[in-house]
Each structure stands twice: as structure tokens, then as C-alpha cells.
Amino acid sequence: MFAEYSSSELLSIFAMQGVAGLILFSVFVLMALGLAIIFGQMGVINMAHGEFMILGAYVTYLTSHVFSTYLPDFFSIYFILAMILAFIAAAALGALVEWAMIRHLYHRPLDTLLATWGLSLILQQTYRTVFGPREVGVTLPDWLMGSYQLTESIELPINGLFVMCLALGISLAVALLMYRSRWGTQVRAVVQNRPMAGAVGINTGKVDRVTFALGCGIAGVAGSAFTMIGSTGPTSGQLYIVDTFLVVVFGGASSLLGTIASAFSISQAQSTMEFFMSGSMSKVLTLLFVVLILMLRPQGLFTLKVRR
């Protein structure tokens, strides 16, 4: 396959392919982090995760509209503000959903699955009614478009680099929040032993609500970032949900480190295979590989050691 190419050409292609794998990795991390927090820490299977992402995307779309109409001078920086707004909107909706629906369904994982699936349908139809069934185009500021010419033959997509930085930043923030903050200690205490955590004075209901809102907020930021690389429509969230669950389950539900490791292995496997074979085939092989590992290790890659 490579005989007719010079070594420098090959080198640059492999470099770009490595970057492609890292971009896919970052996309997976962004998709999965919010879900991992909710699923891992609370045991709630949030089927509406994709719709929270799309909420973030629509907030970005609205922000871009407002800026291009009223503040064209500041258009180049709107994206940062849009991500913050996306976080706030998705987190607020998450808190509302937790209060109205999820908190009545704890310890009934299958019911949360159905309820959040219903929620996803409701949200999809709401988007369709409000924004119309067609996809909307989000205009990006110029500095996020195009590619960065590293050498003569190596070009790096700027939006990909941006997603990478964002994934890194959010992962670090979540890690700090979980393992270095008082709130994180409370969350982990609730995960390990809810009655005991309640007994020592932790408001477990509030911890649950904030955790759910945080997970949804991160989904919103992810959705906002994905307007750079994907589509924004009422059902676009469905494009991400399968991969997201795959990453979270494969990584071991309650471990954030596991989520990152699994995002890394799946993305590398997929992007490498996509290079050597057709996209459909590489997807099949990736899924087979995941199924095989889960058969050998049903708890996922990483597990939290908890005294039950």
C-alpha cells in the first residue's frame, strides 16, 4: 500500500493520522465525561445525554446570531461566551430535570432509562418545534476555521486542536473538583455509602442535584464545541449517544480515569483501522473488540474498589 510513497510523505501522513486519533480521543472524552459523572457517580442511565449536548449547540447558534446581529465587532470572541452560556443552560435544565424526575427514580435504574429516553424524545420534538426540523448552520469566527501549517506537508485542523485543549481543560477541572474540593469529597462519600454520608451531615439530595447538573453542563459545553465539527439539528444528539455509552461502559462505569483510558483505546483503535480499511468495517471491528474485552472483564477497564 505504501510502496509508491516517499518516506517524508509517509511520515507526514502518519503524523496527521496521529493527530486525527488524538482529536477523536478528545471528542470521545468530551462526549463521555458528563455521562460518566452521572452514570458513574449516581447510577443514573441518562439517555437524554445527547439532547443536553444539542441544547449546548443551539445555545451556541443563538449566541452567534445575537453577536452577528448586534455586536459584530466582538464576533471573534463569541465562541468562548457561547460555551459558558451552553454550560449554564444545560446545567440549569439538568437541575430542573433532576428535581422534577430523576430524584423520584433513584435505585430504579431501568425506570430512569425509560424516563430519560422519554425526556430525549420530548427534547427532540421541542427543538424541532422551536428551531425547525432543518439543521442550522453555526457560523464560526475565522480564527477557528482552517488549518495550521506545521511543516510543508503537515497540516493540523485548528478546530481539532481547540477540541483537544478543551477536553484537556475540562478533564483537569473535573479531576480537581472531584479529588481536591470539598464538594468532590462529598460526592465520593455519597457514592461509597449513601446512608452513612447522610448520617454525617452531607445533604445527599443536594449533592445529587449538583452532580447531575454538572454532568449535563459538561454535555452542554461538549455540544457547543461540536458545532465546529458536526451538525446541529434536533436529532443530532443521537449521533453521539452510542459511542458515548460505549466509552463509559468500556471504561468501567464509576471510574473517571477508566473513561479516559477507554476513550483513548477506542479512539486509537478506530482511527487506525479507519486508515487501513473502510469506515463501516472498522466500526464493526471496534465493536467486536469492545465486546470481547467486556466478556473477559465485565466490570470494564477500571473499577472503583468499594466496600459493599
Binding site: 501522513i13 496527521m16 493520522q17 493527530v19 482529536i23 446541529t232 486508515f275
Partner: peptide, 30 residues
Amino acid sequence: HTQFNSVINKIKLKKPDVIYAIVVGGSNVA
């Protein structure tokens, strides 16, 4: 499908004159 970076690299390697694309739906945007 939402990630096309690998196939784009492959296209760069093969240097075709024409990319004949019949991608549909949300994938199109990506």
C-alpha cells in the same frame, strides 16, 4: 458517522483529482 479525519488523510495520501461524495444527513455537515 461524525469523524472523517482518517479518511481525509487517506484522500490526501492518494491525491485523487476528484472526490466523488455521496455522504448524507448529519454526516454531511461533519
